[in-house]
Nucleic acid binder design. Structure first.
Lengths: 346, 346
DNA sequence: CCATCCAAGGAAACCGGTTGACCAACGACT
DNA sequence: AGTCGTTGGTCAACCGGTTTCCTTGGATGG
């Protein structure tokens, strides 16, 4: 019953179209160092389609051409942020004729294994590396093995191949919203220190707080997890002596916001009546929290597409460079923010 | 500065070890159709390690051997369930000398593209297909192209190659817990109908409810999302005339539980004082909800490993068969369940 | 009318492994 | 002394593409 029980090969297409392997290869790869009659070209394409021909990736790779595959390395897939980035990358890669593979490297634990499996075994042409931390083991490996790659989300200093978002503007967006509601003491739950987007966001927060003339701008750091958010929130909710109590919090991730919600509730405070909360990054679950969480949505999908564009450009020989995706953050208003001291919703 | 600027090839290892390519290949692949002196074998291994040799996957694949790669196809990566499964699969695959690639197929939208990219281009030896719905386009494609594959999580009827969990026991576990607390009217939020694990869980729920002699066992269906959970919860919270009000809900996914929490709150009911709630599948976020969610944790990691075992066995020529992973569900007690009508915590 | 040139395509080497067939050397056996 | 069986390997073909260099036939130019 098998319609195509066995893969069609290049030679099958060639025979069927009445031309040589070389011609088929050149036609299908759209090379113009060859002149072919339009009708021949046409026939080759038709036969290839009819046979469902797909070049064997290994054979291509062997023959010196590329594998037409990329890999996206993310630190943790249970962070849905990376899922969105990955979708953007996958889609754009496909448009460019590449396949984007997804690999999780658990903050560098298995980075070298992954590198060996994917790069050394010749499965991919290049690497998209999301959120590499400083001293990530891969950085050294990459310096020894010249493989096209870009860093995304977290910049690697001086690499000259970073693809990032305008995280500073996300702080500005969140602050403007809270300030407009009347908040004057706003706290920020930052990510771990030493990580670029985390520090950029925090610095922008402090800078813009100052320019808004806010009374105080306390910051606490924590992992991008629920736990990190909860711990940092407790810290910010317990002001140092003589300091004013915060009336709003702005977190660096959605998970942190969820942790913060829990901490706020444990303190017997209400959201948004007593404390307003703005999270970073938007996901469906935000709408179903109690109260629904107001967030600053970042252009994660675009980050993925931009990273692929940059990597493919590098693979094709263009020199790499830093890129910032142009789309600006977007405030998604839900129920977790209100005027300070108000008894009602915003 | 490049230590190994260029990949070491088989021939490099051979030259360095003073033997032929064939010998190196056979030694490294552990073939016993060849006799080699232990010292030669040793030397080959040492040289290979010293050179950081990795066989080129394309070349291996071409030469008729396998690619040593598998692909796991999941319908949606933002469902963290699949992330856990994927980690189990990746790890076990690695132990067996395989690389497990992860691909998202958006409920079949891109299934054929993915199939072409991975199987027809010869990148993988087999497919792990998670949660295939009936009439999934891949099913037909697979029937035409004989590729080793297994279905996991959701069984495909009569395929004879399903790897599943004991979902019936998860219903029993949840019910026993709620029944022991004194609940007598327990509702179940099921997944979409027509999907095996969903129906198995529901059937087991109904069966065990009956055997416990529960007054009523209302069921509502919904997608595995927050939205599906919220809608189904509202349905169950509005009893038909003459029917008793539920005092507890058991959902099929964590996302549904989150949606249900929201619906319960919107009704002005409290958890767990008015309604107890048990979710299915455990994730860190469950601990940070308000209240922390009691869940039935399923052996997702084991599901991944078992699926890889089954697939690799099939690749190595053993006939496929259905497998149920033996580990039983585990109740994770947190704060979302209490005695019915109680004012306090459990 | 012959040399030249260009359009159109073909032949063959090569990429890096795997594999079955083959072979040399040596000891044992007859 | 000749033969046989082992041990310990080697040889070379092959997998399915890509790429470089050729070839060929007809049109064109002188």
């Amino acid at each position: 019953m098998a319609e195509q029980p066995v893969r069609a090969r290049l030679v099958d297409v060639a025979r069927e179209a009445g031309v040589s392997k070389a011609t088929v290869s050149k036609v299908l790869n759209g090379r113009q160092d060859l002149s072919v009659r339009p009708e021949t070209r046409q026939r080759v394409h038709e036969v290839a389609a009819a046979l469902g021909y797909r070049p064997h990736s290994g054979a291509r790779a062997l023959a010196g051409a590329s594998t037409h595959a990329l890999a996206l390395l993310v630190p943790a897939l249970n962070n849905p942020t990376y899922v969105t980035i990955s979708r953007g990358a996958y889609q754009r890669a496909r448009e460019l004729g590449y396949l984007s593979l997804l690999a999780e490297d658990f903050d560098g634990q298995e980075a070298d294994d992954t590198f060996n499996d994917l790069v050394k075994e010749g499965r991919v042409d290049g690497l998209l590396i999301a959120s590499a931390r400083p001293h990530h083991p891969l950085l050294e490996t990459l310096s020894r093995n010249p493989v096209p790659h870009v860093f995304l989300n977290r910049a690697v200093k001086d690499s000259g191949r970073n693809v990032t978002m305008d995280v500073a503007r996300s702080s500005v967006t969140a602050l403007d919203h809270l300030h407009a509601l009347g908040h004057r003491v706003i706290g920020h739950i930052a990510g771990p220190s030493g990580i670029t987007p985390s520090e950029d966001r925090r610095d922008a927060f402090l800078r813009h707080s100052a320019s808004l003339g806010l009374a105080a701008a306390p910051v606490a750091s924590g992992d991008f997890t629920e736990e990190g958010g909860a711990t940092a929130a407790l810290e910010l909710l317990t002001p140092a002596e003589g300091k004013a109590q915060v009336t709003a919090l702005y977190t660096s991730s959605l998970a942190q916001a969820i942790g913060a919600m829990r901490a706020i509730h444990e303190r017997g405070l209400r959201i948004p009546e007593d404390i307003s909360l703005v999270g970073n990054d938007d996901l469906p679950v935000a709408a179903y929290l109690t109260p629904p969480l107001t967030t600053v949505a970042m252009p994660l999908h675009e980050l993925g597409t931009a990273a692929v564009d940059a990597l493919v450009a590098e693979i094709q020989g263009k020199p790499p460079g830093d890129v910032m995706v142009p789309t600006e953050p977007r405030l998604v208003l839900r129920g977790s923010t209100a005027r300070p001291g108000s008894g009602g919703a915003s």
